[in-house]
Amino acid sequence: MDYPAPVQKLIDELRRLPGIGPKSAQRIAFHLLRGTREDAERLGGSISRLMDGIRLCRICNAITDAETCAQCTDPGRSDRTICVVEEPHDILAVERTRDFKGRYHVLHGALSPLQGIGPDELKAHGLIERVRLGGVDEVILATSPTVEGEATAAWLARLLKPLGARVTRIAMGVPVGSDLEWSDEVTIAKALEGRRDY
């Protein structure tokens, strides 16, 4: 049986969302049909307003609704340290630690030769300029612990070091709460490499 066109259209759109399969899409569509017009309009409104006013921070490329994001404008944070991440949501992961009080820079990806993502496809230019302008003591490279994340870090280090900033890489290794026995040799080798004195 075919659904009426507007229902089918909604199901098709919902299915494109992450984590939504055909069954869930159907369930959500029929849930909305059972609800009131106001409920549906409120949801529709917030989706259509989502893109209005959302932009990338002029300084760090984080997602914001102002010209500069909250982290870039917070006077309680230091300009002397910049933490470089691949994606905007990585900022939230670092923020959850509540330990980092510096600024951020979002690359919007990592060097990925196999996907055709090179320097021109990443937003690294602003980072270089920020460091070039001075006042930055340390750049922390918090790209993914993958071959591509490593290549991205190596590439950035090569661009940033001549500018005089200290460039560091986050440690990689055994996840907290896991069993050493089940970690593969690369993970353990990286953990040993990043060991520190007590």
Binding site: V147, E150, A189
Partner: peptide
């Protein structure tokens, strides 16, 4: 991973 760790050129060339 260790091969890629030999430097940027090696890592990109491996890709």
């Amino acid at each position: 991973f260790p091969a890629g760790g030999r430097g940027l050129e090696t890592s990109l060339t491996l890709s």
